[in-house]
Simulated scan of single mutants.
Amino acid sequence: MLKDLRPALSLLVVMTGLTGLAYPLGVTGLAQLAFPWQANGSLIEQDGKVVGSALIGQNFTGPGYFWGRPSATTAPDPADPARSVAAPYNAASSGGSNLAPSSRALVESAAEAVARLRAAHPDRSGPVPVELVTASASGLDPDLSPAAALWQVERVARARGVAAEEVRALVLAQVEGRQLGLLGEPRVNLLALNRALDARWPERRP
Results as ranks from 00 to 15, higher is better:
E108Q: 15
A8G: 02
G126Q: 07
P127T: 05
A86D: 12
S10M: 15
L183P: 02
K3G: 15
P70A: 05
Q46E: 15
S10A: 14
V13S: 15
P202G: 03
A105K: 04
V130G: 09
R6F: 15
V153I: 08
R200W: 04
G26I: 02
G48N: 05
R155P: 12
Q179S: 13
L30N: 11
A91N: 06
G29A: 09
A159C: 08
S84T: 04
A169E: 09
R6C: 12
W151T: 07
T73Y: 02
Y89P: 03
V153L: 06
I56L: 01
A72T: 02
G161E: 01
R124G: 01
W67M: 14
W201Q: 03
Q58H: 07
P63Q: 06
V13I: 15
A199I: 10
P76A: 01
G139L: 12
V153W: 07
L30C: 06
L12S: 12
E154T: 05
G64P: 08
R204K: 10
E154G: 03
L33D: 10
V50K: 15
A163P: 04
P78H: 07
A115D: 04
A147I: 14
A164L: 01
L43D: 06
Y65A: 13
G126I: 09
R116T: 08
V153E: 07
A72D: 10
S145G: 04
K3Q: 13
P122G: 05
G184Y: 04
A79M: 13
E185R: 08
L191Y: 03
G26A: 04
P127H: 08
V156T: 03
D80L: 14
D141F: 13
A137P: 05
S102F: 01
A91R: 10
W201K: 05
V130I: 08
T28Q: 12
G48L: 00
D77Y: 09
E112F: 04
P63V: 09
A34I: 12
Q38L: 13
N98D: 14
P81H: 12
A87S: 15
E108G: 12
L197T: 01
A196E: 11
E185A: 12
T61L: 13
G62F: 04
Q58D: 11
R205W: 00
L12M: 14
G126T: 08
G64M: 07
R104P: 06
T28R: 10
D4L: 15
